[in-house]
Design a protein around this nucleic acid. Structure first.
Lengths: 221, 221
DNA sequence: GAAAATATGTTGTTTTAACAACAAAAGGAG
DNA sequence: CTCCTTTTGTTGTTAAAACAACATATTTTC
């Protein structure tokens, strides 16, 4: 069941398909489908389970008292989510996990991940180490977003985000995984103000864009 | 060497002092002192080491292009820092770790933490699990700060932060670990504007404060 | 305890983003 | 293709924060 796909994920990297199948049995995983907009985990709940996206994608969202929606992350196939809360099953979740499209999720019980056959199977230790790496990466992503929301102006945030993306994708031209509203949420700004600032920056020759494709313009002498 | 203190930290929780001493030898830790303002890790560098604060405290700071300083975290004795980067030693650090006062730090080589005697010593697995829990907690802290910087107004951010602190400390009256500038940095706002808003809120009877001690006022019928 | 350094509060001005309401464009379904 | 839905862009108004410059208070140092 999905072992071929799982073997390519960071979490199970380095394990053979047989080993993975063995672990899946031992971990008693369960698979579930969600349609666009369906809530996978709801703020306020607690959970022992972490999710692994098999297909589709998941948004991590925060809704505040006043109904403003804030996107904290976008989880794509092979990536995990809610592992933080699964590690601290007494902490109520502060965010919602919502299917962004038709999505298949594999749920893993963190108690089993951490405590079953600790010495017996060597893959188990590898799994835990992968989890650690994944959490480190997630940490970096959170920090990154914080960096991008640190500037006080919309322009500053856009430049911070887009130049980081350009560096990461190794090109002046980047395709971003957000539409305008989502980008506004990610940067914690108003959508229409974001649109306005983008237009202004284009007129000033700082960048060009079409849909979700952006080109940063570097001034030549 | 410090085993009594370490036995009380989250990282070494559940291990006896003898076991800890054994691990310290096996991990080849090193101890170092820093004075207030000294940079422990500098943005742009990479590291295999994580830090554990033995005494004093450490601020995690981001300086942007324009010299604005942004405090991402405050690390107190028993807590660890830079473990994220130590887990991903190829990633250049995006932040500085700076001693906030006279500070003693224990450095642990993450390579050794993760890869030495994986099956041999049982404490090792416990250590890794503690690390995982610690990283989960850190993740929550990052998310928390994001929550507090999500509101668009200074007042909203203050209320978000202070009421969360009140809930955490279980009291209407909270003592916060920041001075005004640090609080402003944590909430990503201008210090003088923060001062102004605090004064206004006090005049409106929402809260009272003196120095870094704040009392939230709940309206009675 | 005086002097210097640091931290906090105050005020007025300028810049900027939020907000609201609408127009235009793009995308999908029948 | 046409209607309907969703997304994106535009404009003007209002509210708020940044910024700068300074006054006051508190802490540290000698």
């Amino acid at each position: 069941m999905d072992t071929e796909f799982l073997a390519k994920t960071l979490l199970f990297d380095g394990s053979s398909q047989e080993e993975i199948q063995g672990m899946l049995d031992c971990l008693e995983v369960r698979k579930q489908c969600f349609s666009r907009g369906e809530i996978i985990f709801r703020a306020g709940e607690t959970t022992r389970f972490m999710g692994l996206v098999l297909s589709g994608s998941v948004n991590i969202e925060l809704d505040d008292f006043w109904g403003n929606k804030n996107i904290f992350g976008h989880v794509t196939p092979g990536q995990i989510f809610a592992e933080t809360y699964a590690c601290r099953p007494e902490e109520p979740m502060q965010v919602n996990a919502v299917a962004d499209e038709e999505t298949q999720v594999l749920f893993l019980d963190m108690q089993r991940v951490l405590h079953t056959c600790p010495a017996a199977c060597p893959q188990h230790n590898r799994l835990i180490r992968s989890l650690l790496t994944a959490m480190a990466q997630k940490n970096l992503n959170l920090s990154q977003r914080m960096m991008h929301t640190a500037p006080k102006t919309i322009r500053g945030r856009l430049l911070s985000y887009l130049s980081a993306e350009a560096a990461r994708q190794g090109s002046r031209t980047v395709k971003i995984p957000f539409n305008r509203q989502q980008l506004a949420d990610y940067l914690s700004v108003d959508r229409s103000a974001l649109s306005g600032e983008l237009g202004k920056m284009q007129r000033e020759g700082l960048l060009e864009y079409h849909k979700n494709r952006f080109s940063l313009i570097t001034e030549e002498a």
